[in-house]
């Protein structure tokens, strides 16, 4: 089940998605996280962030809306307090980075790109929850291109760009990122979503929708991007079963990230690894690559 992204090899293509797995410690008390192909960390920003005030999550049919606002410990504390545990694991480590300015992203890429025990950086240009944050980069093509160019120049580490599905034509952004020489594209982050409180007639929550509800939407984007782009695509959005993970692989994704469903079923990633192994055995396939992109 091995796959490669840039120069990094991962033992399998089942990853935990950013923001849904912390820095691995909590899940390690429940499941054997060493079995995962990779863990994508919660977004790391240059300075610690306190995140958004008020209600941060709400449930929707088969989904949830979050507006966490990138709360995280910041680069220094990440390196001093979190990285040691992560590097002790036998799984791939991908650091999700976010910033408010191009320089912040570049600074993060320079520092993290030079550290041992990290296998890739995932640039989060797509968080819909921070007013000044990534979403601006993912809405303006020129800014986006400059950001990716600068981050690419800052590090030789495998670079993944995670796109927003709510910022315009996702394929256009994917092509721009490819042209700047990134190693892979994650399709995609959460979908911009809202709820209104009918009692007060005010917005109840506005944030990003995730969970099983978004699976068909994300799949449609993955199919479109994979058809038109030749660098690896990592699929994210609504995975909740072996079958949904397989659909992403068939569509052409080289790896998949499991997000919200980790909360619902903490061993979902392990179940999917097991299920895909069984699927391959039954179909007498020797490599996951025989499934990837098998959609005619």
């Amino acid at each position: 089940m091995k796959i490669k992204i840039g120069s990094s090899e991962f033992k399998n293509p089942i990853f935990a998605a950013s923001g849904t797995f912390g820095y691995g410690e909590e899940f390690s008390r429940i499941i054997d996280i060493n079995k995962l192909g990779a863990i994508v960390t919660k977004a790391v920003t240059l300075k610690p962030r306190k995140g958004n005030e008020g209600l941060r999550i709400a449930e929707t049919p088969a989904g949830m809306i979050n507006r966490i606002g990138l709360e995280n410990v910041g680069l220094d504390a990440f390196i001093n307090e979190k990285l040691k545990f992560l590097s002790s694991l036998k799984t791939g480590i991908i650091i999700n980075i976010a910033g408010e300015t191009k320089n912040e992203y570049v600074a993060l890429a320079k520092v993290l790109g030079g550290l041992a025990g990290i296998h890739a950086l995932e640039v989060n240009v797509s968080c819909p929850n921070v007013e000044k944050g990534g979403i601006e980069f993912s809405q303006d093509l020129i800014q986006f291109k400059e950001l990716i160019k600068a981050v690419r120049k800052a590090t030789e580490m495998p670079l993944i760009v995670k796109l927003s599905p709510s910022a315009g034509d996702i394929l256009t952004f994917a092509k721009l990122a490819r042209d700047e020489g990134v190693d892979a594209i994650t399709v995609s982050n959460t979908f911009k979503a809202s709820l209104i409180d009918t009692k007060s007639q005010k917005i109840y929550i506005q944030g990003g929708l995730s969970g099983p509800a978004i699976f068909p939407l994300a799949l449609s984007n993955v199919i479109q991007v994979c058809k038109n782009i030749d660098i690896p695509v990592i699929a994210s959005g609504g995975i909740h079963s072996v079958d949904t993970a397989l659909q992403f692989f068939i569509a052409g994704a080289k790896a998949v990230q499991i997000g919200t469903f980790n909360f619902i079923q903490p061993d979902i990633a392990l179940q999917i690894i097991k299920g895909i192994t069984t699927f391959m055995r039954e179909k007498k396939l020797s490599s996951i690559n025989q499934i990837i992109g098998s959609l005619p």
Binding site: G19, I30, K42, R56, I57, N66, I68, E71, N262, F263
Partner: peptide
């Protein structure tokens, strides 16, 4: 609080606290 994960990974269930004279989550 309304909880997403219940185990400290989603940051959805914050409470504001005073810690050494500062406000923290």
């Amino acid at each position: 609080r309304i909880m997403g994960c219940g185990m400290g990974v989603c940051q959805g269930c914050t409470v504001k606290v005073k810690e050494k004279g500062r406000l923290n989550n």
